[in-house]
Design a protein around this nucleic acid. Structure first.
Lengths: 319, 319
DNA sequence: TTGTACGCGTTATCAA
DNA sequence: TTGATAACGCGTACAA
C-alpha cells in the first residue's frame, strides 16, 4: 500500500536515481521527467522514510540536550537559546531531562553511540568525565563548564565572577558572608567554593560551614534558608545566592521575619531573571540564551573549541 | 573499520540471526553460541546502529512535543510532566519550540509523516485543525485543548472554569471585570471569551473592550496592563489574569502606583505557580504536570481518547 | 543526463 | 534451536 521510491520510479517510468534526484533537488534531470516523477509521487501518495535516509547517510539531524530540569529558569533560558539556534540550523533537539540521574546521561550517550543523535550537549552533568570521555569517538560532545579536558565547551569564569562578587560585598562593608548554591559537586560549584575559601582566607574573614547552603534552586529553598538563618546563633550578614529564585525566597521570608535588606542582610543574586527586577535584587546577569546559542553551534563542529561568555553586575537594592 | 552485525556473525561463527537474537535477548539460543557472540561483539567493537533498527521496525521511540516557548512556567510545567512520563516509558522527547510560528508546527507534522517520530503532542497550536488533521494517518496526534474533532486530547473545561471564576469575583462584589490573556485565538482562549461575554450579559454588567488585555505572558506584561489601567478613564475593578506571572506584574506595579489590592483592584491569577504563593495571589491551580503525563500516555495509544483534568481555587489575598 | 546495482545494518519469515 | 534470505527504503558510485 504505502509507496516507496521504487514504486514512484515504476509509475513515472524512470529509475530510482532520477526520483531521488528530484526528491533532493539535484540538477541533471529533465524538466519532463521531473514532472513525471512529481506526478507519480502525487498519484502514489509516496512519503519519504527518513529512517532509510538516516541509515544511508549516517546522520539524523537531531542533537541531544542533557539537563536536570526544564522547569528552572536557568535551564529554561539555556534551552531557549539552544532551541533558537537549532531552528536556525534546521536541526531538532532531543531532550534528556535527567533530574541529575546519571543513568539518564548514559542513555543519552548511548543514543549518540547508536547514531540516534548526531551530537550531545551537556548543560550540566552528574557523571564523571571519565565515563563521558570514551563517547567522544561517536560524535561531538559539548559541555557547559570550564573543564581541563580535550572537549568543546562554553563557559563563564566562575572563580573570577564569584571573587568579584565577594569583593563587591566586601566593599559594601559586609564581613560575614555566606552563600547559597544548587549542589556542591560540579565543576562550576567547586570553582565557586574555591573562590569563596580563597577570598575568606585572604581577608581573614570568619569561616562558618553553616553559612554554605546547598540545594538552593527555587523560591521555597530561599525561604528555608532564611528560616535557618533566623534561628542561628551566628548569622551571616550577606549572602551570595547563585540564582534569583532562591534570592527572592530569602527576601520574601526576610520581610515576613522582620529582617531588613540590605541592612541586616545583603543579598546578591545570579541570573538577572525578571523576578530580580520585580524585587529589586542586585544580581549578576548571566548571558544564558547566548550560552545556549554558542553551545549549539559548537555541537555542529568536529573541532574542539572553548568559548567564554561574560557576566554583568546589575546594581539594585539588596546589597 | 566499524563492525556490523554481519562481521560479528562471521567472527563468532554463527548467522546474523543468532547475533540478532543475542542482541535482543530472545530465547532459543545456546549458551555456548551466546558466549561466542558476546565475545565477538567485544572483540570487534560492534555498535548497534539504531537507524537500521528504525528502518526495519518502522518506529523510533521518539515522541514530538510542540510548544511555543519552554521558558514560560506554564509550558515548562507541562513539559516536566511529559518528560517524567516519557522517561517512565523509555521514550525520548523531540522538542519543537515554535514561538507560535505555524511553519514549525508543519515541520513537526512532516517529521511524523516521515517516521522520524512515532507520535506528536501539541501543547498549543497556531495551525488550523484542517491542516493538522490529515497527518493523523501517520501516527497518533494529541492535543491539549477541548476540540470537537476526532482526535485525542487532555483538557480543562475552560468555559466552566472561567465562569466559576467570574461568579467568584461577582460574589466578592466586583462589577467591572476585565481579563488578561495570552492570545485571543486558540480554542482555550475562545472558550474563555465566550464565558466572559455570556457572564457579562447574564449579569448585565458593562462591557468594555479595552478591559480585555492581550499578549499577557510575563511579569512585564502585567506591569504594562496596570500602566494602561492607571491612565484609563474607565477602570475595571477586577481582573481575571490567565497566568500568575502577569498577575504578579500587575501587583508589583499596583503597589508602585498606589493602587490597593484587592480594594481598588481584585486580581485573580491562574496556575498557582510559586510566585502566586510569594505574593499571596488568589489563583486557580491547574494540574499541569498531570496534564503532561496524561498527554504523553495518550500519545502511546492508537485509540482516540478524551481526558479531563480539574482545577482548584486557591484563596489568598488579592480578591 | 540517466540507469544499474550495490551498500547501509537490522529484523522478520520460513524452512530445516 | 539455527540459518539463509528477503524485506525495510534510500543514496550513490559507476557505467552508459
Amino acid at each position: 500500500m504505502v509507496a516507496n521510491i521504487r514504486d514512484v520510479a515504476r509509475i513515472a517510468g524512470v529509475s530510482v536515481t532520477t526520483v531521488s534526484r528530484v526528491l533532493n533537488h539535484h540538477p541533471y534531470v529533465q524538466e519532463e521527467k521531473r514532472q513525471a516523477v512529481l506526478a507519480a509521487i502525487e498519484k502514489s501518495g509516496y512519503v519519504k522514510n527518513m529512517n532509510a535516509v538516516n541509515l544511508s547517510t549516517g546522520q539524523t539531524g537531531m542533537i541531544g540536550v542533557v539537563l536536570p530540569f526544564t522547569d528552572h529558569p536557568y535551564f529554561a533560558a539555556l534551552l531557549k537559546g539552544l532551541a533558537e539556534e537549532a531552528r536556525a540550523h534546521r536541526k531538532k533537539l532531543v531532550l534528556f531531562q535527567t533530574d541529575y540521574q546519571a543513568d539518564q546521561e548514559i542513555e543519552a550517550l548511548e543514543m549518540l553511540k547508536h547514531k540516534q543523535i548526531d551530537a550531545l550537549i551537556f548543560c550540566s552533568r552528574s557523571s564523571e568525565w571519565q565515563v563521558i570521555k570514551p563517547y567522544q569517538s561517536f560524535g561531538p560532545i559539548v559541555m557547559c563548564e570550564e573543564i581541563q579536558e580535550d572537549v568543546s565547551y562554553t563557559f563563564i569564569d566562575q572563580y573570577q565572577v564569584f571573587l568579584n562578587a565577594l569583593h563587591y560585598l566586601d566593599q559594601k562593608g559586609y564581613q560575614q558572608i555566606g552563600y547559597c548554591i544548587g549542589r556542591r559537586s560540579g565543576t562550576n560549584s567547586q570553582a565557586r567554593e574555591r573562590a569563596y575559601r580563597d577570598f575568606l582566607k585572604s581577608r581573614q574573614f570568619p569561616v562558618n560551614e553553616s553559612w554554605i547552603f546547598e540545594n538552593c534552586y527555587h523560591v521555597q529553598d530561599g525561604e528555608r534558608v532564611l528560616e535557618e538563618i533566623s534561628v542561628a546563633t551566628q548569622r551571616p550578614d550577606a549572602l551570595l545566592v547563585t540564582n534569583d529564585q532562591t534570592a527572592a525566597g530569602i527576601l520574601i521570608k526576610a520581610q515576613e521575619k522582620g529582617f531588613s535588606v540590605p541592612e541586616d542582610l545583603g543579598v546578591m543574586g545570579f541570573d538577572n531573571h525578571p523576578i530580580a527586577g520585580m524585587l529589586s535584587i542586585t544580581t549578576i546577569e548571566l548571558p544564558l540564551e547566548e550560552m545556549g546559542r554558542k553551545l549549539f553551534r559548537q555541537s555542529l563542529k568536529q573541532e574542539i573549541s572553548k568559548e567564554e561568555v561574560y557576566v554583568k553586575l546589575v546594581e539594585r537594592k539588596t546589597v
